[in-house]
Simulated assay, not measured.
Amino acid sequence: MREEILAYYEQDKEDARLREGAGRLEFWRTQEILRRLLPGAPARVLDVGGGTGVHAEWLAGDGYEVEVVDPVPMHVERAGRLPGVTARQGDARALPAEDAAYDVVLLLGPLYHLPERPDRVRALAEAHRAVRPGGVVVAATINRFAGLNDTLVQGNYFLPERRTRVDEVSADGRHRYSLEDPHFTTAYFADPAEVPGEFTEAGLVCEGRYGVEGVAWLMGGVEEWLDDPEHREAVLAATRRIESEPSLLGASGHLLTTGRRLP
């Protein structure tokens, strides 16, 4: 694992990011999409790059048998303390898993940090190997223009140095680590159109794509809307309505792509 990626996640900000503020939209939408896509519990789930177990926790609460594999030792230690969750250290490109051992394999983070296509395909191929025939693989990607949209919303796009970096990422998807830009680490922002091809190359049949936050994450009042139960349900329903609309897939900050290993 690249040192700058490890250092970024050792700051231990990711768990709180998904449980607080506007990040709750990503968390709740990922949760509701997975609950529709996954087979019923009990089923065996391998959560690759599962971090501190932010999703493993509710999956185990729903009755799934969950194992987290993550390259960050601190993540593994914390996830392993959750009831119903086991955790071990490992790399998405060489999973410590037996063939066809799981009903579901989730990659809700690893593809973010694999800038080279062969590495992404290798991680998906490992998921294909580990999931049973007929089993489900779900992978998350950051959308190509997520950084541009986010910096516009935050007002940072008007800073010349930030604009230059954001425009470079928009051109090729490669977010390059820089000490002058501590907001994120080495990452790849994917064109939604390229993800199904990577699934196919890994041997998976692509079955669906889902924009996680839709356009709601770009609205100035989204954090306050999420605080209000009535407004929150309206936002979630509106985002659900457009989640697979082809013309809007790239507007979302994150995309979930689902595939299946052929029986």
Rank of each mutant, 00 (worst) to 15 (best):
M1E: 09
E4K: 03
I5G: 00
I5P: 00
L6R: 15
Y8D: 03
D12T: 08
D15T: 11
A16I: 01
R19F: 05
E20N: 03
G21L: 04
A22C: 09
R24F: 07
R24P: 02
F27H: 15
Q31W: 15
Q31C: 13
E32V: 06
E32N: 12
R35L: 12
R36K: 12
A41E: 03
P42D: 12
R44C: 02
R44T: 04
D47L: 08
V48D: 02
G50T: 07
T52L: 13
H55W: 00
A56E: 15
A56T: 10
E57I: 01
W58Q: 15
W58G: 13
L59Y: 07
G63S: 03
Y64K: 14
E65Y: 06
V69Q: 01
D70P: 10
H75D: 07
H75Q: 08
E77P: 02
R78Y: 08
L82Y: 05
A87V: 00
D91G: 04
R93F: 09
R93W: 08
E98T: 00
E98Q: 05
D99W: 09
Y102T: 00
Y102H: 01
D103P: 05
D103A: 14
V104L: 02
L106G: 03
L108E: 15
L111S: 05
Y112N: 13
H113D: 13
L114E: 06
P115E: 08
E116D: 13
R120V: 12
A123K: 03
L124H: 04
A125K: 14
E126Q: 15
H128G: 02
V131K: 10
G134Y: 02
G135P: 08
V136K: 03
V138K: 07
N143K: 09
R144S: 02
F145M: 15
D150N: 12
T151W: 08
N156I: 02
Y157W: 12
Y157Q: 02
E161P: 03
E161G: 00
R163I: 04
R163W: 05
R165S: 02
D167I: 04
D167W: 06
V169M: 12
V169G: 04
A171I: 07
R176V: 13
R176M: 10
D181L: 07
P182V: 11
P182D: 15
H183W: 12
H183K: 09
A193E: 14
A193C: 05
A193K: 11
V195I: 14
G197H: 04
E198V: 01
T200E: 12
T200W: 01
T200Q: 10
E201F: 01
G203Q: 14
V205I: 10
V205G: 15
C206F: 06
G208F: 07
G208Y: 10
G211L: 06
V212C: 07
E213D: 09
V215N: 06
G220C: 06
G220Q: 14
E224P: 01
D227R: 13
P229E: 01
H231S: 14
A237G: 15
R241M: 12
I242Y: 08
S244A: 12
E245W: 08
S247W: 15
G250P: 00
G250F: 00
G250E: 00
L255A: 01
L255I: 00
L255M: 01
L256R: 03
L256E: 06
T257E: 05
G259Y: 06
R260D: 05
L262Y: 05
